[in-house]
Nucleic acid binder design. Structure first.
Ligand code: MN
Ligand code: MN
Ligand code: ZN
Ligand code: ZN
Lengths: 142, 142
DNA sequence: TTCCACTTTAGAACTATTCTAATATACTTG
DNA sequence: CAAGTATATTAGAATAGTTCTAAAGTGGAA
């Protein structure tokens, strides 16, 4: 990981983000936070993030990838998208939104909340509270 | 499995269902088909169906449970519901519909298609075809 | 600088699912 | 209805994503 490419301001912003979540700002966490939050919204799997880390020369174990993703998830820095029975997707977009999922490319695309209008939704059954509404639009390459 | 409880007509209907899908009507398949399709729409996991089979005295291996569920899925007799990263759910309702999912009870409830109205949905990106729209409403016990 | 709580890690463990290849059964054909 | 053959079932091994363990390393408070 080339930390020279990061301005001190960027590093500080990431440090603060970790601190605010009660996480020490260690080298692996800073580097992964930079990959995840450094540019726009992203969807990653543990495997894809590990591969990406390897490519930028960051020697980080698989266990750290999983630990970090789960810690960021618990801290609310990431959300989880359940679309694929074979693996977990983590999402840097933690606001409410929906997804296109391209099955054969194992790729997710965000759909902004306002682009899906649910004009009718059933009431939650008695005794249950609404925890969230997920809309997944599955796509095939033509 | 007590096949005496099944009328010859019921057995014939299940046999035909298997045949129409190119599957031989074997004892395990007939018994599982009876459990799955014998009464209303159901959502099962491999584990829950195995347990249910055991309870009715049907000695069937885990491999047969998985084989049968996957064959029924391929044949279009079942659909799959992806809501839980930890296990697969199979659904005897193969018409288009949506779901409530109660996370802590690992339980699914059908939502008829007309009870969810998507008045606005984004177009599929260029080069992709729509394969399906899944709406999952996640619930917590109050 | 010291110290300790927290972090990272290699590798083992775990769990849902699939695979293998041997045995058993259903259906076809004579 | 008796073989014969394709298909089905099964125990157990294998696989893959993820989590756990416990030992070595590090961040930051003081
Ligand atoms: Mn987790
Ligand atoms: Mn499958
Ligand atoms: Zn997203
Ligand atoms: Zn259903």
């Amino acid at each position: 990981m080339n930390f020279d490419a990061l301005s001190p301001e960027q590093i500080d912003r990431l440090r603060d983000k970790l601190r605010a979540s009660g996480l020490r700002s260690t080298r692996p966490r800073l580097a992964l936070a930079h990959l995840l939050f450094g540019a726009g919204n992203r969807h990653v799997t543990a495997e894809s993030l590990h591969e990406e880390a390897r490519k930028v020369g960051l020697g980080v174990s698989q266990a750290t990838i999983y630990n970090t993703l789960n810690q960021f998830l618990s801290a609310g820095l990431l959300s989880e998208v359940i679309v694929d029975p074979a693996r977990s997707y983590f999402d840097t977009n933690v606001t409410e939104h929906h997804h296109f999922f391209i099955e054969n490319e194992t790729r997710l695309i965000d759909i902004p909340l306002n682009e899906v209008v649910l004009s009718t939704v059933p009431d939650a059954p008695e005794g249950y509270d609404l925890a969230g509404v997920d809309v997944v639009i599955r796509l095939d390459r033509r």
